[in-house]
């Protein structure tokens, strides 16, 4: 497959570096990601691998270096391997998730605390922020949640891929990514301003406003449709 062939090509041109997977020594060509380095070493992944493009959070991982014990955090599909890296896989981490019916809850701080009461035990160690591979201000949006500033949580947490590293490192067992998800859903459902033009269009469609014209187009022969298409006016992109 493609990625495998690439690795082979790279092998001929580039120097090999030492890495350690679950403590075992391997040599891989420099320039691979943590994920492709593991595959180069022969790992066939089932867990810990999803979109392979930095969006799904499946491959969240920790690593450190031979002579530097401090843990670092990243997504295995995006992070390039470096010499003397110690790599692991985190296939799953248990974390609490509140159950709720969005239609029956209120967008306020009491509701957030009712669903995630442990939020008040945050003592501001900032480990969550330090672990975030998306470099989000996790501790700050947790404090926004504690104050009930739902819009601020939604904005600050928006790029969260829900990898779970923040929850894995929280000494209080809090689950910032699920708190943020609750807040974003509350914001979208209750606090975002309503789009009148969307409501109007839905009503028009339900009233059958476009049915006759659509039926005409569906029955139109291809050449006529092509002509309509070629001659249609195009709104400027900006």
């Amino acid at each position: 497959m493609v990625e495998k062939i690439k690795a082979k090509q790279v092998e001929e041109q580039v120097k090999m570096i030492n890495i350690y997977i679950m403590g075992k020594h391997y040599q891989v060509p420099e320039g691979l990601t943590i994920l492709t380095a593991m595959e180069y070493c022969g790992y066939r992944l089932i867990r810990g691998c999803g979109c392979r493009a930095g969006f799904c959070g499946a491959c969240a991982t920790v690593f450190n270096f031979k002579d530097d014990p401090q843990l670092r955090y990243d997504l295995a599909c995006q992070k390039t391997v470096e010499p003397d890296m110690y790599l692991v896989q985190i296939p799953f981490f248990p974390a609490a998730k509140a159950l709720y019916n969005l239609e029956e809850i209120e967008p306020d701080v009491e509701q957030i605390l009712a669903l995630y009461p442990d939020l008040v035990t945050c003592f501001g160690c900032n480990n969550c922020t330090k672990t975030c591979p998306q470099e989000l201000e996790v501790m700050w949006f947790m404090s926004d949640a504690l104050r009930g500033d739902i819009g601020e949580v939604a904005t600050k947490s928006f790029d969260c891929v829900m990898c779970g590293l923040c929850a894995a490192r929280c000494p209080q067992g809090l689950v910032p990514y699920n708190v943020a998800l609750l807040c974003r859903r509350l914001y979208g459902r209750y606090l975002a301003p309503v789009s009148k033009h969307l409501e109007d269009r839905i009503a028009e469609i339900e009233a059958g406003k476009f049915d006759a014209e659509l039926e005409k187009l569906e029955k139109m022969e291809k050449s006529k449709l092509q002509k309509l298409y070629d001659e249609r006016d195009i709104e400027p992109a900006y």
């Binding site: 928006f158 979208g188 301003p193 789009s195 969307l198």
Partner: peptide, 23 residues
């Protein structure tokens, strides 16, 4: 299509919007 957008918003999807609420 429009009702799919609405359905997702009702479930809590945050669409990019202008300040007046238009999408």
């Amino acid at each position: 299509a429009p009702s799919a957008i609405k359905w997702l918003e009702t479930l809590g999807v945050n669409w990019d919007k202008e300040p007046d609420g238009s999408l």
